[in-house]
Design a protein around this nucleic acid. Structure first.
Lengths: 146, 146
DNA sequence: TCTAAATCTGAAGTTAACTTTAGATAATGG
DNA sequence: CCATTATCTAAAGTTAACTTCAGATTTAGA
């Protein structure tokens, strides 16, 4: 048992299901900020388990790491967040979810209208013509969804 | 006005909003199969406008090109699809949407349960522990969502 | 104390979905 | 017929989110 409350990167990996390399990468991106031992090894707060769990959840909701970074920026840095802190993040994510559900529901309606009916007029269809983010231009993958 | 019903890659690009380079890439991936002129230029069916429009829609729903390929494989190759053909694809996409909405709705519930309440027991939370695809392992981007 | 298991760093590789570039050839409108 | 615009190909570059590798150092437990 550890003397204090800090955990190693290996343990954090086990607790979150993440690979050690992924956690190091998240540190680079600023998603976690561990302290170092005298021998330069990373030591994380126990609350970072939750922090990274939230990252995983947000990823499943389709957020990119940059957006997740913005969410987590609302939490106190380096100090364990309180219940209220977490609830605030939770509310933000909930809004994201609500928005996505709305978008999908609208898409479903349009799909029925535009392909399902006899007109086949996809060209005039709202689904495509609306200025709704078609995904930023430029190279790289295009997993947008909103 | 063109003598026959085939269109050039430039026109297809204008009609779909896609970049010419993207359309060439989609050809490589097998999503469209244009014929060639005597001078080796691509000529597309008018129905390919719709075909690529569906690709765009499916991408917005979060499908990867590989999955979209599978969807489009159900359409006749090289010949203009009928209304019924399109409706079949539409039904498939509708199912995808329904599934995603369900997933998000469940996620929302769990989020409220696990972060919103006082217990903060994310570790025991269904959101993470369930064997629900955390996204295939390996390198590359991780935009999963189901 | 000593050794096996865990960590460290930096650089390079990987996947997805495209874009950019360069030099060459085709098609079109006047 | 000719200039301008559109296309062609192949190869290399780009972004995101990581992984893999190699060699060196640290920790932890018997």
């Amino acid at each position: 048992m550890a003397t204090d409350t800090l955990i190693s990167i290996g343990e954090l990996a086990r607790r979150t299901g993440l690979a050690v390399s992924a956690i190091r990468y998240y540190e680079q991106r600023g998603l976690v900020t561990p302290v170092r031992t005298a021998g330069n090894q990373r030591r994380f707060l126990r609350s970072d388990i939750r922090r990274l769990s939230v990252v995983l959840i947000a990823q499943r909701l389709g957020l990119g790491l940059a957006e997740i970074e913005a969410e987590l920026a609302k939490l106190p840095q380096g100090r364990p967040p309180t219940l209220v802190d977490w609830q605030q993040v939770s509310r933000s994510l909930r809004k994201e979810i609500d928005a996505k559900v709305g978008l999908l529901t609208r898409a479903r309606g349009k799909l029925d209208e535009c392909i399902g009916c006899g007109c086949l007029s996809l060209a005039k269809c709202q689904l495509l013509n609306r200025g709704d983010s078609v995904g930023a231009a430029g190279p790289g993958p295009r997993f947008v969804l909103g």
